[in-house]
Structures are given as structure tokens and as C-alpha cells.
Write a protein that binds this DNA or RNA. Structure first.
Lengths: 328, 328
DNA sequence: TTGAAAGCGCTACCAA
DNA sequence: TTGGTAGCGCTTTCAA
């Protein structure tokens, strides 16, 4: 302390109006000179709120979550928060650990895409923070949810194929334990129902929503006696796997097989004849999600008696027709 | 406090040997029942070290940094740290802000891919934490560096084209302000020198290492009077842009143009005829980087007099030949 | 084996 | 406009 009191220094650095400009200047120059950097842990201990926001997703290499991470990172940065990123690889124990750490850090909030079967404790901890669910809708309770219209998305994709004359349509989707898996599967069925057609149940494959599973599933579909003439990939990671299988097996798209993907990674446009796909406004979705969370954080906690209904924001996917689908 | 003292509770939860098992059990069950969760800010304030590790990169959607994020996330999780992710979009002010936040949080360490022209203060702050540079080599000083052999990588790629008979080879790379830009450009020149050939200087384009620039640059190269017969993309983001231009312009690869990419995103294999590329062990690199950082963190600070030489780990890229390159 | 108390760096309250 | 001081929740030293 070279001159004045602790409180004066604190106020000067916080740029409070009651401090004279001369004093502010003196304090600041000295602080800079000595390389003083505030201690955020001490501050958050005193004020009671931290500046951390968590993002918990299965995998950032998935274009979906990569885009979400960029969007939330931007939100956090602009609002002066730091983003803690955790990749669970859909491992419920990893997930629990990460969520617990976030609660221990008294994070200001978190955005989470929950794993298919989260631990009971995980859900309890998620509810303890101001949380928002992204894409997957599992927590229940009153956690706000930001996702896409999975049902309509896959229904649209499937109708596109049905209306192109396809009947033997394969489906590669996430497991039923996921809300996304259920809704997308239902959308697939709904498309057949709407056209009064029977669903080819033998061509439906569901499992972990990653490329590895999808590749295996697609290969299986292709090796079956009665091959599909088209396939719907019902997830970003799954789309990658389906395309890998198509490449590896040397399937001629769209002559032998029409394919519709999910999401719109930049390279889909340049894949083979161009991939027909359901584009999702992921960046916008995650940005909206971050905005909502920040507003919750900066608003005082609502009174216990006025309980607003659960917030749900459903963004719509758009069909983008490229060269990978042809009429039959 | 329902029974005993603060210290006893603290020790019980820390599983200290001096506490009786009976007491531990009592404390734990009560803690669980009441949903007690430790306060990491208070702990780190007391102990003087936090459990945060920062990762600062330009963009996580870039396959390169996406893979690095996954690797570091795994390292952090296994060692009980939390990863703070910041995406600077190569904006030096954003970068400074994020680095400062990390220092304010007294982060245990950070891994950073610095922007082309970082603020002076940024570098000072980076040196203040246990930091490691990833890929880009700009901080100087004694910050350890983990990167790839950029020179040799691009030299290999270029030799592959030269030996296939190409002479008019275009080069789309990052600006010279980046270590990676310099080294890769040098590698390009070195390949020509090694074969005793003149470098086609009119086909060299350098700029920001993103898809937007690369697309523009590639389009320019293609519209020139004397077109290249091959092109080298010297960066992950740049590769995406070059491929976009190729798609948009409808260039026939490899008949009209041979192309070599940088990095090996999963979809490169299935792009057009398969993209010939320099594969980089990014995951391994980032994992090694994280391991090194953690070892530094857990080791006591070295004495000022025994100053080890700057740690540099250079991983080698590998040429993967696919269908996008043909002899001329 | 347990308890009392100091102190990490900050902010906010009360006093001057 | 400035100073003194309590206290956030934890760990750790010293004492019992």
C-alpha cells in the first residue's frame, strides 16, 4: 500500500464516481506498473456470484456442438463471463463429475446437452444452477429447453423421399432413450402415415448417435437382401457415419441410393453430388439459448409463488435439396 | 452445524486419517442429505491455486482446434481440472480480455494458439501463468511450444506435386505474421529449390488463415491468365475454403487441377475423389501438450538459477495420397 | 481425535 | 472524498 487505504484502491479500480480523478489516475498507474491483477475468486466469494458459465456437450468435434460452442463463447465473452467447456463423450460418470465441478465453482449458469441416461444426482445438480437444456430434452422439471423441431425435421426429410417415389427408405437414428431419438423416429413414422404407406420396419436402425454406429448400421442395411433405395440419417454424427459407409462401400449416390443428412456442416455442400439435408439453425439456437440464460442470471430470482411455465424454444429445420436425392 | 466443529467437518470430508470412521460416516451422510457441495472458490483462495486450465484458440469449428479441445478436455478431466475455452476469432482484443480473465481467475495454466499480432500486454500475461503454446510459435521467451513441422509438411506436399510433373503450383497460406505462415511458405519454396526449379511467385497467396480468404484466393488463382495445374492449401481452414472455391467454380479435380490439403478432417476422405492431404497428429499433439502442462503445474516452480532450455515438441505430418492429385 | 481461530483478497457498510 | 473493518467458506496451525 503506497499511499492510501484498501477501500480507496478498490473503489478507484472499480471506477466509482465518488473517487477523484486524480486519485484514480494515481492508483491505476501504480497498479499497472506493479502488474496488479484482480483476484476473481476473492471477488466472487464476497459478492456471492461467479463469472463462470458451463457448456456440457458430448463432443465438440460434432459440427452441431462445435457451432454451439462458438455461439455460447461469443455470448459469454460479450457479457463478461468465462465459458467452461466439458465434453462428456456421453459418459454419465464424466457428466456427473463435470456438473458437480460446476456447482462447486458456483457457476452462474450452465447449458447442457444431457447424456441418454444421466445419473440421478446429475439431474439434481443441474436443477441447482440456472441451467438450460440444449437439443436434448431429458431433465424434466422446469429447466428451459432450446432445441429443434425434430419430429417435423425428419418428417420433412422423409416426405421428400416418399414424394420422390421411394418406399424402401432406411433410417439411421439415435436410441430411443434420447428425446431426439424418439422424436425423430416418430417423425419418420409420421411421414409414412401421412401418405398412407407402411413403414419398412426392417430398415430402421437406432443406437448411439455417433459416426461409428451409423457406419455399421448403414453397412448392415446395404448388405440386407432387400436393400433400401434411400436413407435418412437422423443426426449430425450419424450423417458422418452414413457417408463414410457410402464411401467405403462405393455406393453410387444418387443412382443406387438417395441420402438425406441432418445438420448442415460446411462440407455437406461439396460432398459427392452435394448432400440433401435438413439444415439446422444451430448457431442461432445456441446464441438464443445463451441470451436467455444470461437474462435469467441477471434477473433476480423469481418469487417461489409465481412459477412461470417451462420455457421451450423450438427452432425449425429447413430442407436443402442438393444432388444426393433423386426420384426413383 | 449439527453436532461438531467446522474443522472436524472439513477434515471428515477431506477423508483425513485422524478422523474416526464413525465421525466420517456421520458427517458424510448429513452432508449428502443436506446437499452440501464444497465451494471451490473459497478453497482456491485459501490454498492459493485454482483448478482451472484455459484453452485459447481462434475457432473451435476448425477441425484442428476442435480436436485439440477434445484432447485437452480429456486431459483436464482426468487430472481433475476444468477447462475454460475461449475462441478469439483471431481478434487481439478479445484475446487480451480472455487471457486477462484467466490470470484474474489465477488459472493453474493455459494452452494458447496466439493470434497473428497479439497485444504486448497479452504476452506479458501469458508469461505470468504456466502457459504452453499450441501450433503457433509467437510468444518467444521460454513458453513451451507444441506444434508440427510446418516446413517439412508443406515441403513434402509440394514435392509430391513437383514429382508428379506439376510446375504451375498455386499456394494458399496464412499470413507471414504467423510462424505457421512463414514456415509453411518457406517449405513451399524449399521444395522448388530442392528440385532446382523456379518458384511461381505469381501463384502465391497469403492472408488470414480462414475459409473466406482461401476461397477468394483460389478463385483469383483460377481466373488468372496462366492457371495453376495444382494447388497446395497450407492450413485447415484454408483447405475448406479452397475446396469451396473448387466446388463453386466446378473445377474438375484432378483432371483440371490437383489439390493437396492440410490436416485430415474425417470428411476429407470422402470429398470428391478423396483429398490428398498432410495428416497431422493433432489429438496426440494436444494431448501431449496437456500432459506437459499438467506435469509443470504439479511440479514445484523451478529455482530461478536453473533455467531449462525452452521446451519445443515438433510432431511430424504425414502425406496421405488420395484421388485429388494426378500426374501431369 | 477434536476444537478454536487466523487469514486468503475482495467488497460493502459505517464512520469521519 | 476517504479510511476502517467485517466477513464470504475454506484450510491449516496450534492447543486441548
Amino acid at each position: 500500500m503506497l499511499g492510501v487505504s484498501v477501500s480507496t484502491v478498490g473503489r478507484a479500480l472499480a471506477d466509482r464516481p465518488e473517487i477523484s480523478d486524480a486519485m484514480k489516475a494515481r492508483v491505476r498507474s501504480l497498479a499497472e506498473q506493479h502488474g496488479y491483477v484482480a483476484h476473481s475468486a476473492a471477488r466472487s466469494m464476497r459478492t456471492g456470484h461467479s463469472t463462470l458459465i458451463g457448456l456440457i456437450v458430448p463432443d465438440v468435434r460434432n459440427d452441431f456442438y462445435g457451432a454451439a460452442a462458438m455461439a455460447l463463447a461469443k455470448c459469454c465473452e460479450d457479457a463478461g463471463y468465462q465459458m467452461v467447456l466439458a465434453a462428456t463423450r456421453d459418459d454419465p460418470d464424466s457428466e456427473l463429475k463435470q456438473v458437480r465441478s460446476l456447482v462447486e465453482a458456483r457457476a452462474a449458469g450452465m447449458v447442457i446437452a444431457l447424456s441418454p441416461s444421466p445419473r440421478r444426482e446429475t439431474l439434481a445438480l443441474v436443477r441447482r444452477l440456472r441451467s438450460t437444456e440444449l437439443i436434448r430434452d431429458v431433465a424434466g422439471g422446469d429447466t428451459p429447453w432450446f432445441g429443434i423441431d425434430d419430429h417435423r425435421g425428419i418428417e420433412t426429410a422423409t416426405l421428400h423421399l416418399l414424394d420422390g417415389g421411394h418406399r424402401r427408405i432406411g433410417y439411421v437414428g439415435g436410441q430411443e432413450a434420447l428425446s431426439t431419438g424418439r422424436d425423430r423416429h416418430a417423425g419418420f413414422a409420421a411421414a409414412f402415415a401421412r401418405r398412407g404407406l407402411d413403414l419398412p420396419a426392417d430398415l430402421v436402425r437406432t443406437g448411439p448417435p455417433d459416426a461409428r454406429f451409423a457406419e455399421k448400421a448403414m453397412a448392415e442395411l446395404w448388405s440386407s437382401a432387400h436393400r433400401p433405395t434411400a436413407v435418412v440419417a437422423a443426426g449430425a454424427g450419424l450423417t458422418v457415419g452414413v457417408l463414410e459407409a457410402i464411401g467405403r462401400l462405393g455406393i453410387d449416390v444418387p443412382a443406387e441410393l438417395s441420402a438425406v443428412g441432418f445438420g448442415d456442416a460446411p462440407w455437406f455442400r461439396w460432398w459427392g453430388p452435394g448432400l440433401t439435408t435438413m439444415a439446422l439453425p444451430v448457431y442461432e439456437l445456441a446464441y438464443a439459448c445463451g441470451g436467455h440464460l444470461l437474462r435469467q442470471i441477471e434477473r433476480p430470482a423469481p418469487a417461489a409463488d409465481e412459477k412461470p411455465p417451462r420455457y421451450r424454444a423450438m427452432h425449425s429445420p429447413t430442407l436443402i435439396v442438393r444432388g444426393s436425392t433423386a426420384n426413383v
